[in-house]
Computed example of a mutant assay.
Amino acid sequence: MLEVLLGLVVVYAVIITLVYIRTWNNAQSAELTQKAAFKKRQAMMDATIEAKADEAMRLHQTFQKFVPRQFVEHFAKTGGTSLELGRADEDRVAILFCDIRGFTSLSEKMSPQELMYFLNSYFLRMNAPIHQNNGFIDKFIGDAIMALFDRPQGDDADKAYDAVRAALEIQVALTLYNNHRASSQYAPVKNGIGLHFGPVVLGTVGSDDRMDTTVIGDTVNVAQRIESLCRYFNSDILASHSAILLASSKTEFEYRLLDNIVLKGKSVATPVVEVVSHLPEAVKEQKLLAGEAIKDGIKLREDGYLKTALSHFESCLSSFPNDSAIKHHLRICKRAVNNKEWDGMVRL
């Protein structure tokens, strides 16, 4: 009887153990299943988050292509947290305008697709010198570029210096681009650059459903007017005298005074200079030498000695027959001598 009881106890114990083991295995299996399901859900969530992060980054990068990052950073440093419509801040910046000379005749020889390819190829090369010198492109206007130089933590001289350096490096980039074009039997491209420094208003304009960033002010207008004179003077880089003096306080740039000009839409004269630092030594030497003669002639003209100034520039032309600036002064002096009511102002 005892042996039967012991046998039953052993059987019961085995049954209990088997039940426990099975229950434990089921629990472990359920736990593993839950962990696997959790990991799967976590992986799906991570993938979703990563996809949304990538999408946000792409949107951010796309947004920066239309609204310059530096524009947003400018508002941020002045306490702005958003680019709401009508936002406006004042600042002192250097402005650079760059335009392709003879673009109309050049574009007429291209198909629409060729024209777009050419412009993008050109802009790509002009972009680097601007960004490498703490500037940013505010907008493309047809074949023209408008760029701002507002170096973070920099003073006025730093900003003007950056703009002049960018202008010089743009001409280097243009030379390299023309070498590339020559290898494909394309005609060379020439451009003109105008520089000025002063106060501007940076802000947002438009409507609720279409908004754009913009920079307005007399400084912008003067820079654009100066750039438009590049063709007239057959020059690569022109600047206001005030801007080049400011930049030269950092590093000496080589330039010459062209004239004191009342620009379109202005009532007072702006001294306009030609930057020659980037030119070949022989060309630079001739321009600077002629520049001294031009300076003397301007003084004679402005002091009222018109006939003497005319004789002076006629003599200069024999020494520098290809200098567009001297030809300009001859035209002005001849006009002044023949016009008794001339007020002494040069308007271009």
Rank of each mutant, 00 (worst) to 15 (best):
P271H: 02
R151A: 12
E302H: 02
F313Y: 11
S29L: 15
E227S: 02
Y255L: 03
Q70L: 13
I100Q: 00
I95W: 00
H329R: 05
E73A: 04
A282F: 15
G206Y: 05
Q34T: 13
G154P: 12
C230K: 00
S319R: 15
E31G: 13
G142Q: 03
D162F: 02
I15A: 08
A53P: 07
I15K: 09
L5C: 12
A37M: 05
E3S: 12
L245F: 14
F38T: 14
L289C: 08
A269L: 11
H241I: 03
C230I: 00
D236G: 12
I298D: 01
E73D: 10
D54W: 05
G344Y: 04
F66T: 03
Y117T: 11
D143I: 11
G297P: 07
N127R: 12
L229Y: 08
Q185L: 06
L5S: 08
E254R: 08
I21M: 06
V11W: 14
E90I: 09
S82V: 01
S29A: 15
H74I: 15
G142I: 03
S235E: 02
M44C: 15
I100P: 00
N179G: 14
R41E: 13
I95G: 00
A293W: 04
E90M: 15
D209V: 14
A243W: 01
R22N: 09
A53M: 14
L195R: 00
E84T: 15
R256F: 15
K307G: 07
E90G: 05
I326S: 05
V9M: 10
L119C: 10
L263T: 04
R22A: 11
